[in-house]
Simulated scan of single mutants.
Amino acid sequence: VNNAGMQHVAPVEAFPPEKWDAIIALNLSSAFHTSRLAVPHMKAAGWGRIICTASAHSLTASPFKIAYVSAKHGLAGLVKTLALELAEHNIT
């Protein structure tokens, strides 16, 4: 279960790059790394389930939340890609 999130609210021109990096790392990259490491074990078992918790921001945007919205949109794409790639292995 990938269920992590953090938020920072600021206009784009004032958004600290270190906050961008931290939010992308926690909200998106961590789900990739966790899933990547779990998949070989699930394939060996012949099945598995990967759950990624996002938010309404995986489908829509809000002002002043550029990193959070970007990460959650990315998470939606990540989980759709995993579903297509892993369905033949009984991993959903």
Results as ranks from 00 to 15, higher is better:
L75C: 09
A22W: 03
L26D: 08
M6V: 12
G48S: 06
A61P: 12
I51P: 08
V12Y: 08
T34A: 15
A10H: 05
S29R: 13
S62T: 13
L37I: 06
P16N: 01
P17F: 07
I66R: 12
I51F: 04
R36E: 14
A56F: 11
S29G: 12
A71C: 10
S58W: 08
I24V: 09
A38E: 05
S70W: 02
A10I: 00
I24W: 00
H57P: 06
N27L: 03
A54T: 07
K72W: 07
L82C: 08
A71V: 06
D21T: 08
P17E: 08
A38N: 04
W47M: 08
T81L: 10
G77L: 06
R49H: 03
L75Y: 05
L28G: 04
A76T: 15
L28M: 07
V39L: 04
I66H: 13
I50F: 00
H41N: 15
R36L: 12
I23L: 01
Y68S: 05
L86W: 01
G46V: 04
G5H: 08
G5K: 05
W47G: 14
H8D: 02
H33N: 14
R49Y: 00
A44Y: 05
L26G: 12
N27Q: 06
A45S: 14
S55E: 04
N90G: 03
F15Y: 07
A54S: 14
A87C: 10
P16G: 04
A45D: 03
F64A: 14
A4H: 12
